[in-house]
């Protein structure tokens, strides 16, 4: 559909025009690799069969997808504030098409960023995935991007203004990152935190990425911890729920008159 293509194309044009956003998305995982990686690597040194920086790689790629897709979807908040969302809502397309276009744009942006980062990061940590591994990794990134993108849409439809953004970062992004298995294996966590991990869509994306990239260390307990099919199903479920919830919420934004009315009275 042309409308979906238009919405996706706009996301890419906007992203590439914002130099800072491009640099941050490419640079962020390397900052983590250097600072967190160097620190944790010394703690783990000599104790494990895997270099900690290689162990981090799937988690860092998951992080790239999370930031890439979540932030792209959260741009719906600025679309609403700037009025652009209304241009989409008055077009002869369904609310669900708008939601799908935004989610797809977010997914593809997150995927593109993860692919670029993977190209730079994996040689650096001496990970050489097999063709099958690379393909599974791509699937993981796309599915995780879709789950993150739809989550971002739901958040964007629920928060009133961009000022609430810091709250989203503190109470959504960071817990999601730490409870994803990106930095340490999930199996060492207690039952409560483990339950939180399994409620976290990013955890399934990271797990799938571990299957894709760390399969050689699966025997030592550093590979994916859940079955591949469960990871995929969980991510698809999160994405489906996200889309179903976000579409009517976005439509409600057509009620722009409502807030305008309240301000006037």
């Amino acid at each position: 559909m042309r409308a979906v293509y238009g919405i996706v194309a706009r996301e890419f044009v906007r992203f590439l025009r914002q130099r800072g956003r491009v640099l941050a998305s490419i640079g962020r995982p390397f900052v983590w690799l250097v600072f967190a990686g160097a620190g944790f690597a010394t703690v783990f040194a000599g104790r494990s069969e895997i270099d900690y920086r290689a162990y981090m790689a799937p988690g860092l790629l998951g992080m790239v997808v999370m930031f890439g897709s979540l932030l792209a979807a959260l741009s719906t908040v600025t679309d609403r504030e700037a009025g652009v969302l209304r241009m989409m809502l008055v077009a002869p397309i369904r609310r669900s098409t708008v939601a799908f276009g935004k989610a797809l744009g977010a997914t593809l942006l997150g995927t593109a960023q993860a692919v670029v980062v993977a190209g730079l990061l994996l040689p650096l940590v001496h990970l050489r995935p097999t063709l099958g591994g690379a393909l599974l990794g791509l699937v993981a990134v796309v599915f995780a991007g879709l789950a993150m993108g739809t989550l971002g849409l739901v958040l964007a439809a629920s928060i009133r203004s961009i000022e609430n953004f810091a709250g989203v970062m503190n109470f959504v992004v960071f817990p999601m990152l730490f409870l994803s298995g990106a930095l340490y294996p999930v199996r060492h966590l207690g039952p409560v935190l483990r339950a939180a991990v399994y409620a976290n869509p990013l955890a399934y994306g990271v797990d799938l990425l571990k299957h894709a990239l760390l399969d050689a260390w699966a025997g030592a307990g550093y590979g994916g911890e859940l079955p591949v099919s469960l990871d995929c199903a969980a991510l698809a479920l999160f994405a489906g729920i996200g889309l179903a919830v976000a579409a009517p919420l976005l439509g409600r934004e057509g009620g722009v008159t409502r807030t305008a009315f309240r301000e006037r009275r």
Binding site: M1, R2, A3, Y5, G6, I7, A9, R10, V13, R14, R17, Q18, A82, G83, V84, R86, M87, M88, A91, P92, I93
Partner: peptide, 23 residues
């Protein structure tokens, strides 16, 4: 109030609208 994307050019905005209307 305007509904144009301030970061896009005039032509990009019109092209975006054309796609939304499936032209």
């Amino acid at each position: 109030e305007t509904t144009l994307d301030r970061d896009l050019t005039v032509a990009e905005n019109l092209r975006f609208a054309a796609r939304l209307w499936s032209l």
